[in-house]
């Protein structure tokens, strides 16, 4: 008895409107990531004489930062470092998840035990805290932080793939594929993975959203990106001192992060719900 009252259908319409808006937002952000120069040429050009101009100044719709750089251009240019890392994190974590989760789920036994304990252990580690400490002590740049995040995010994918594979393994159609005498690789690739791609894809999206937050948190603390680079987290911490002169500097970066993260999350969740 699937329920869809007028009330609930209204909710569904709202959700799909949100889904479309989120997709639109992501398309715009992606365009900024791919072609920053087209939308914001010379974003890093400084003009210290005109630092801290408030929003709606002539030629600077969002004003300028302390170094006199145009905030709108900075915002567009900053999208790249905001999203490149999270994409890499999500992709890397998915690759590890597919490999280790697939092995653990399909073969079980000792391999499963070792991989599961590894996942449990990494899962119990506070990832942002460790990333802060690691970035701080090792002093590595952006990609070192990305690597740490990949390692700390992967247990979620490992568990996801493992349980999806285990669930598939018990399905009658997998048992009958085994009775046909098909090999493990054919069953994994042709019969199991097509049925688990969806959950993995959804998790990929959610990983991007979480990665966005983690990476920008690091750059907010001044870790991972070099001073002066265009980056949303960086822009917030720099703009904080400018909160009286040009609040748009920090607030626009904050809004950009929140909106992008919400949009990615929304798309991921909607895909998940539609597919259930």
């Amino acid at each position: 008895m699937s329920a869809s009252t007028p009330r609930l259908r209204q909710g569904a319409t709202l959700a799909s409107a949100g889904f479309c808006i989120s997709l639109g937002i992501l398309a715009v952000v992606l365009a900024f990531v791919l072609f920053p120069e087209a939308f914001a040429p010379n974003a890093l050009a400084q003009d210290v004489a005109h630092g801290g101009l408030p929003a709606l100044s002539s030629g600077h719709p969002l004003g300028t930062d302390a170094l006199g750089r145009d905030v709108l251009k900075l915002l567009i240019a900053g999208s790249r470092s905001a999203l490149a890392g999270p994409l890499a994190i999500a992709a890397g974590s998915m690759a590890i998840g597919l490999l280790l989760g697939g092995i653990a789920g399909w073969y079980g036994g000792a391999a499963d035990w070792i991989i599961s304990r590894y996942a449990d252990l990494t899962l119990s580690m506070p990832s942002l805290l460790l990333a802060i400490v690691a970035a701080g002590i090792i002093g590595g740049g952006y990609w070192v932080s990305v690597l740490i995040m990949v390692i700390l995010y992967s247990p979620f994918d490992i568990r996801l793939v493992r349980s999806a594979v285990m669930q598939q393994k018990g399905m009658a159609y997998i048992e009958s594929a085994r009775l046909l005498g098909l090999g493990a690789r054919r069953i994994l690739v042709r019969h199991i993975f097509p049925n688990v791609t969806l959950v993995i894809f959804v998790n990929f999206f959610l990983n991007i959203a979480y990665g966005l937050v983690s990476m920008s948190s690091l750059s907010y603390l001044g870790l991972g990106v070099s001073p002066g680079a265009a980056d949303w987290g960086r822009q917030i911490s720099d703009g904080r001192a400018l909160l009286f002169d040009n609040p748009a500097c920090a607030l626009s970066a904050g809004a950009a992060i929140i909106i992008t993260a919400v949009a990615v999350n929304m798309v991921g969740r909607q895909i998940m719900e539609r597919s259930l």
């Binding site: 959203a209 966005l212 937050v213 920008s216 948190s217 907010y220 987290g233 917030i236 904080r240 909160l243 009286f244 609040p247 920090a250 607030l251 970066a253 904050g254 809004a255 992060i257 929140i258 993260a261 919400v262 990615v264 999350n265 929304m266 969740r269």
Partner: peptide
């Protein structure tokens, strides 16, 4: 709740700081 779980705490904090305190 969706905004709360997606938004990084420092960004939300900044918005709160600006709106409620400043």
């Amino acid at each position: 709740a969706l905004v709360g779980t997606s938004a990084p705490s420092y960004a939300a904090g900044l918005v709160f700081l600006y709106v409620f305190a400043l």
